[in-house]
Design a protein around this nucleic acid. Sequence first.
DNA 1: GTAGGTGGGTCTGAAATCTGGACCCACCAT
DNA 2: ATGGTGGGTCCAGATTTCAGACCCACCTAC
Lengths: 150, 150
Amino acid sequence: MLTVMVSATAQPRECSIARTLEVVGEKWALLAVREVFLGNRRFDEMVRKTGAPRDTMATRLRALVGSGILERRPYSEHPARFEYYLTDAGRDLYPVVLTLMSWGDRYLAGQDGPPLRIEHRCGHRLGAQLVCEACGEPVRAGETRPVRTR
Amino acid sequence: MLTVMVSATAQPRECSIARTLEVVGEKWALLAVREVFLGNRRFDEMVRKTGAPRDTMATRLRALVGSGILERRPYSEHPARFEYYLTDAGRDLYPVVLTLMSWGDRYLAGQDGPPLRIEHRCGHRLGAQLVCEACGEPVRAGETRPVRTR
DNA sequence: GTAGGTGGGTCTGAAATCTGGACCCACCAT
DNA sequence: ATGGTGGGTCCAGATTTCAGACCCACCTAC
């Protein structure tokens, strides 16, 4: 007889994209991060500006603090009040946030254009472009190649 | 008496980030897109390589097709079989995928380094960097400023 | 021909999560 | 004492997720 039941056809890829999404791959988490980038560090403000349920926001913030993206700092005792700051890791999510925004600006802007404009210190409207660190050329999908490492 | 109940304290920001996340802001959606970027265009393959429940993957693929990110093309009738291709809009998600990967590579790589390497056509390992389209300078979080448009 | 495999799903029921709304508590100002 | 702010928690119901089984049309090997 000896019919072997392997069944393990699933082999999820080990992948930095998947790992990152485990941490910030949820709407409210990323919108919370957006708010902190925009300078809104407080719970109520984040709830108002994102539209997230208070409960969900509380949970997300805890998770973001737990994974080292935000830091919760008291700005008053009596009564105890807190603000959320980006850690270095958090600040490094800026490219993610910007590329998301960039895509939305291009494909989902209403008839009256992108709702939020961001200005670079050079004085121009910030249009984010991805370049190869090595050669400085803009990166296009067709010009890259995945290399199996293991 | 006449106590007015406004209650409308919530004013979710109109924002391209939020809009984009409505469309691709979910783990399996983005992982499906990743697979297509890696050249895996078929349902079963995507299920295997992402680990998503078949059901969920089917739902996500329908949504992605619906929002114009993927295109479902038959590659065989009798039996009917389909492949998913990126549209132009889908290809433009490459920067999003790359910046997510980049962040994960930096902050979530195990002791044996990033699990997947991507090579640029220039021959070097692709490290994606965000630059300002106008001045070409790398974009850092502190050097930008949101401008209210309305 | 029949057993098994592939491709692209759907169905099912239990478990987890999300959601809006109410509630809470400490403090401050009027 | 009344009301507002800030930062939450609690609840119950709705929605999603998930794993696993199932399905159907086809193909190939035996």
